[in-house]
Structures are given as C-alpha cells and as structure tokens.
Amino acid sequence: MTAALDAITVVFVLAGCFFFLAGNVGLLRFPDTLTRLHALTKADNLGLGLVVIGLMPRMDHPLSALKLLLVWALGMLAAATVGQLIARSVLRRGLPIWKGPQ
C-alpha cells in the first residue's frame, strides 16, 4: 500500500515538474507576450495540479488533502485572471504580436 502511494507521488510530482519546466522554457523561448502567457498559465494549471495530486496521499488527514485542492483551484483562478488582464493590457497598448514565422 505504502509503496503504491509512494509510486503515485513520485510519478505525479515528476510529471508536474515536467510541465513547470516546459512552462519556463516557453517563457524564455516564445516570441511574444501572448505566447509566453500561454506557456506560463498552462504550467500553472497542469504542473501545480499534478504536484497537488501527487502530494495528496502524503497528507495525514483528508481535510488537509482538500486544502491542497483548494490551493490548486485558487492558483488556477489567479493564473486565468492574471493571464486575461495581461493579455488585455498587451492589446490595449498595441504591443507587438507574433504573426507566425516570417
């Protein structure tokens, strides 16, 4: 039982780390603000979610596991909202937008 839970934790946290890494690579490599936002918010949603799922079997109490889920929900809400606000400000200021490879 413990070994199975450990395996779940390792697999999910590693998968979450992969999405965080991919998000950071996207942040550094993508050509404009909108594509970088895309990379970052996906990393937040998926990466954080997978890490949360991986950590939930570690909690002593089911309520603590629910708190972790709440952290994920709030993180997604914040990422989605901030993504919208930044994207809107990009459009309003007329900052350069990537139109595909020239």
Partner: peptide, 14 residues
C-alpha cells in the same frame, strides 16, 4: 463586465 470585476466578486467570500 470584465474579468477583474468577476474576480472581485468571486474571491472575497473565500
């Protein structure tokens, strides 16, 4: 009607 006003309604209770 923007996303900020939406967040301003959703988050305060939490």
């Amino acid at each position: 009607d923007g996303v900020m006003a939406y967040l301003g309604r959703l988050l305060p209770p939490i």
